[in-house]
C-alpha cells in the first residue's frame, strides 16, 4: 500500500480468458424483471470448487 494509493483489488480479469468459459455457472438474467441484471455478481462454480 502506498502513501497516495491503496489498492483494493489486484488485477484478475484478463487471466480468466484461458481455460475458462466452462458454462457451469448459473444463468444471469440481464433484465430488470428478474433478479440478476449483472453478470459480475455471479459465482464461478469452477473457482468455488477449487477453493473447497
Amino acid at each position: 500500500m502506498g502513501k497516495h494509493i491503496k489498492t483494493i483489488a489486484r488485477p484478475a480479469l484478463q487471466s480468466t480468458i484461458k481455460g475458462c468459459g466452462c458454462g457451469e455457472c448459473q444463468t444471469s438474467c440481464q433484465s430488470a424483471c428478474k433478479t440478476s441484471i449483472t453478470v459480475s455478481n455471479q459465482v464461478c462454480l469452477k473457482e468455488s470448487k477449487q477453493h473447497r
Binding site: A9, L13, C20, G21, T27, S28, Q30, N41, Q42, C44
Partner: peptide, 19 residues
C-alpha cells in the same frame, strides 16, 4: 453483491445472460 477478487470468467463477462 460483486466479487472483487474473482467472480465470473472473461467469456462469461463478454457474453452476458446467454439469452
Amino acid at each position: 453483491n460483486l466479487d472483487l477478487a474473482g467472480g465470473p470468467c472473461l467469456p462469461k463477462r463478454l457474453s452476458g445472460c446467454g439469452a
